[in-house]
């Protein structure tokens, strides 16, 4: 098999897992990030302090170290995960920490009066978050969220070192076996770049959609 064909085959094998683990981590990270931001915004002070400490810890340690610790250190605390599960969990935690900061800024940017009016009218906290605060901040937090999502695409490459058979793992495997590093790394770079471009495009479309839905503008 030619190097080109081998590389393309490696991309085809690795890409679905890269996309899958990325989408799954973004989804879990968004949900967890919203929950963390809500708990910090509405919860009692000790909860806020505890979550702040956790966010700072995740942000203060390189992702490669976190992935290592979870996969190789996990078994010592009874967390014996497959590489893919460990990769998904590590990336989700990492994503949640950063996403939560974006949502925290979103909450902070909404005038308190919008919440006070809702509370006096009888809405409960869950309704206020779901029906007022999140839709209201959607448009302003989207660019920051999309930016993080793009960064996370590239962080999935790190999961190759805990033997997740994703894009970087499969393609660099070809490189090691054939010593055609220039060709394989170029293919790898192009693959990630394409993913990032598609994501950015989707984010722009989403932004217009949210603008239509929340501002009534085209």
């Amino acid at each position: 098999m030619s190097i080109v064909a081998e590389t393309l085959w490696a991309v085809a094998r690795g890409l679905p897992l890269t996309v899958g683990i990325w989408l799954a981590s973004v989804a879990t990270g968004l949900v967890a990030g919203v929950l963390v931001a809500c708990a910090r915004h509405f919860g009692p002070r000790p909860v806020n302090a505890l979550l702040l400490a956790m966010v700072e810890t995740v942000r203060g340690v390189p992702f490669v170290v976190q992935a290592f610790l979870l996969y190789y250190g996990g078994p010592f605390i009874g967390l014996d995960l497959t590489p893919i599960l460990a990769g998904w969990l590590a990336l989700s935690v990492y994503a949640a920490a950063y996403f939560s900061e974006v949502f925290r800024a979103g909450f902070a940017a909404i005038p308190p009066g919008h919440t006070e009016a809702a509370r006096l009218l009888g809405l409960d906290t869950r309704q206020i978050i779901a029906r007022i605060l999140l839709p209201e901040m959607a448009l302003s937090v989207l660019p920051a969220l999309a930016n993080l999502a793009v960064i996370l695409i590239k962080e999935t490459a790190i999961l190759s070192i805990i033997t997740v058979p994703e894009l970087t793992f499969t393609v660099s495997g070809v490189g090691s076996a054939t010593f055609a590093f220039a060709q394989t790394m170029t293919a790898l770079a192009l693959s990630y770049w394409l993913l990032v471009e598609l994501t950015a495009h989707a984010a722009r479309r989403l932004e217009r959609g949210i603008a239509r839905a929340t501002l009534g503008t085209a």
Binding site: P111, A117, L121, P135, E136, T214, L215
Partner: peptide, 21 residues
Amino acid sequence: MPGDGTVGMVFQQFNLWPHLT
């Protein structure tokens, strides 16, 4: 208690929710 239907308030800054008609 806020939200029990007893007291309503109209604010200086209106505090309408901008994403709703």
